[in-house]
Amino acid sequence: MMTAMVAPTVTDCDLSPDLASLVMTTSDERRITLTAETLRAACKCAHCTRARFDGHFAPGFPGIAIVEVADLGYGLNISFSDGHNRGIYPKVYLLGLADS
């Protein structure tokens, strides 16, 4: 009998007490932490993609905090203390960020 391989996914997430990190639990029971700065810099929304293309994307986001996370099922919508709230981070993308 063959057993289907199922890729791990994010099953739960919490913010660190200082709002500087997102702590995720995966279906294979790993705990992954990504900093707010890493997540903000990795945003792939149209606004950030265009800013990168035009050479106007910030080189870093020191001191940024995560102010809200909404689970959309396939990904997380993350809002940041700089007012940016357009980014949707697919769960598979989050796992890739953690592995890089």
Rank of each mutant, 00 (worst) to 15 (best):
G73Y: 13
I88R: 03
T11Y: 00
P17L: 13
S100R: 15
T3G: 10
V69P: 01
P90E: 10
C48Y: 07
V69Q: 06
A36R: 01
L19A: 13
A20S: 15
M24N: 05
D28Y: 04
A20Q: 15
I66D: 09
H56Y: 11
I64P: 00
S27M: 05
V23M: 12
M5K: 13
Y93W: 08
P90A: 07
A4S: 14
R50L: 15
Y93T: 07
A7E: 14
G60V: 03
L95S: 02
C45Y: 03
K44A: 14
H84S: 04
A70E: 15
S79V: 01
R52Y: 06
R31Q: 15
L94I: 04
T26V: 08
A70S: 13
I88Y: 01
G55R: 08
S100P: 00
H47K: 14
G60A: 15
L19C: 13
G75T: 07
S16I: 06
A58F: 05
C13M: 11
E68K: 13
L95A: 02
I32Q: 02
F57Q: 11
F53G: 03
K44V: 11
G87N: 09
G96C: 01
L39V: 03
F80Y: 14
F53T: 12
L19I: 00
V23S: 08
K44C: 12
H47C: 04
G83K: 05
S27V: 06
A98E: 08
M5W: 11
V10W: 06
G96D: 13
H84L: 09
A51C: 04
L22T: 08
